[in-house]
């Protein structure tokens, strides 16, 4: 974005964009955040925290605009579907071409005295 005020003599300078901000857009935004994070395993406490934390600008903006009651209703509706399930991942065995990434080695002489030869594959989502 520009450092200076717009240069009105520049024919390519953007001078105005209409941004309609109707309530349905904000409610839909809140529903999307709730559903996507519920699918990732967030429970009601975590989801509400997401909306209440100012650092998550989009979710928090919806919280301020719609109010806690409405956000709780949206969160519960999402959890009604996505809170019932979990996604269980199973990797195929290494022979199938799946790559197990090595754990970063710990240098000798540190508190943890592992040798670099001690590298072992990550165990992900077992």
């Amino acid at each position: 974005m520009p450092y200076d005020d717009p240069d009105m003599t520049d024919p390519m300078e953007m001078i105005g964009v209409e941004l309609p901000a109707e309530e349905p857009a904000m409610e839909e935004l809140a529903r999307v955040f709730a559903e996507e994070f519920a699918r990732m395993g967030f429970d009601e406490r975590k989801l509400l925290h997401l909306f209440k934390t100012p650092f998550y600008a989009g979710a928090h903006n919806a919280y301020l605009a719609l109010g806690e009651e409405k956000i709780q209703e949206i969160v519960r509706a999402s959890l009604e579907v996505w809170g019932r399930i979990r996604f269980l991942d199973r990797e195929a065995d290494p022979g199938s071409g799946m790559i197990l990434l090595p754990v970063l080695p710990v240098l000798k002489g540190t508190d943890n005295q592992h040798e670099t030869d001690d590298m072992e594959p990550c165990q992900e989502d077992q």
Partner: peptide
């Protein structure tokens, strides 16, 4: 499945 037709992983929707 990967290029060679071998399984890479599987994900299941489960009711815990």
């Amino acid at each position: 499945y990967n290029r060679d037709g071998k399984e890479i992983f599987r994900t299941t929707i489960e009711e815990p």
